Amino acid sequence: MSTYSGVASAWFLRFGAARRATLRLVCFPHAGGGASVFRQWADLVPESIEVIGVQYPGRQNRYGEPVIDDMTVLVDEVVAAVNRELAGPVAFFGHSMGAVVAFEVARRLRGGAPVAVRRLFASAGPAPSARRSLGVHLRDDDGVVAYLRELGGGGAELLENPDIRELTLPMVRGDLRLIETYRYASGEPLTCPVTAIVGDRDHTFTTADARHWVVHTSAGLDVHSLPGGHFYLDDQADRLVPLLVERLLSC
């Protein structure tokens, strides 16, 4: 059963008690995604690792809250929640938009924070310094849906339902605005290793793209490919999570 960290926390969704955990894997969803996408991962990790999903406002249990469509504001909020509610060693996993959010949060947590970021997993997301906006958030509703359909994944199928489309499209558009208006500001690289993961049929993020993450870490980059497209993780949890665990246990 899912519980929230801290007192009535909305930012971090925990899956199980994880009383023996010595490291926390904090997972940042893609644009339009929610923390529940990582629910099954808790059954695939050892007792020493706790899986925590970051829940952005405007979806799932936070549906009634305004969507945050500015990267700086979102990072400010997540960093405050981390400092308030987490401690000890952590690793960040971010998928697509979530990879950049995780990176920016990790940058802000260097030195003096109650947590120590041991590794960043960047999944299906271009390096911050190499991002290019397609202007999808400026398209009409049909244009946004068409783009999501190209990416694939279960979320695109749900948007074929008119009722679901009406409820969720504003949230999706807000997330797209957040990542497409994001501008990387140069700074010191992370001091933790980065692992970049691609789907071998993802035309938006190839192994060549993944190698650009090397400029954002002083501790080394490794790149891995798994079968699938942009949302390879939907079908590859039984291969992806052991990869994450192996890298975490080697930290």
Rank of each mutant, 00 (worst) to 15 (best):
S2Y: 14
T3H: 15
G6N: 03
A8T: 13
A10F: 08
W11P: 02
R14D: 02
F15R: 04
F15P: 09
G16A: 01
A17E: 14
A18V: 09
A18P: 10
R19N: 03
R20I: 00
V26K: 05
F28T: 10
V37S: 13
V37F: 14
R39V: 08
R39D: 12
Q40D: 15
W41A: 01
A42D: 08
V45E: 04
E47S: 04
I49A: 09
V51P: 15
V51S: 03
G53A: 02
R59V: 06
R59G: 02
Q60M: 13
R62A: 06
G64M: 07
E65G: 00
A81V: 04
R84K: 14
A87L: 09
S96T: 06
S96C: 14
G98M: 02
G98L: 06
V101K: 02
E104P: 05
V105K: 04
A113L: 10
V117H: 02
V117G: 03
F121R: 05
A122Y: 05
S123N: 08
A124L: 06
P126N: 14
P128Q: 14
S129D: 11
S129G: 15
S129V: 09
A130V: 04
A130R: 14
V136A: 09
L138Q: 11
D142K: 13
Y147S: 12
E150P: 00
G154Y: 00
G155M: 04
G155W: 03
E157A: 14
E157T: 13
L158I: 06
E160C: 13
L167S: 04
P170S: 02
G174Q: 10
D175L: 08
D175K: 03
I179T: 12
E180R: 06
Y182L: 11
Y184S: 00
A185H: 12
A185D: 15
L190P: 15
L190C: 13
P193V: 07
T195K: 06
D202S: 04
T206K: 03
A208M: 00
D209G: 08
H212F: 11
V214N: 14
H216G: 09
H216W: 14
T217W: 12
D222T: 13
L226G: 03
P227S: 08
G228D: 05
Y232N: 09
D234Y: 07
D238A: 15
D238N: 15
D238C: 14
V241I: 13
P242C: 08
L243G: 07
V245H: 12
L248F: 05
L248H: 09
L249R: 12
S250R: 11
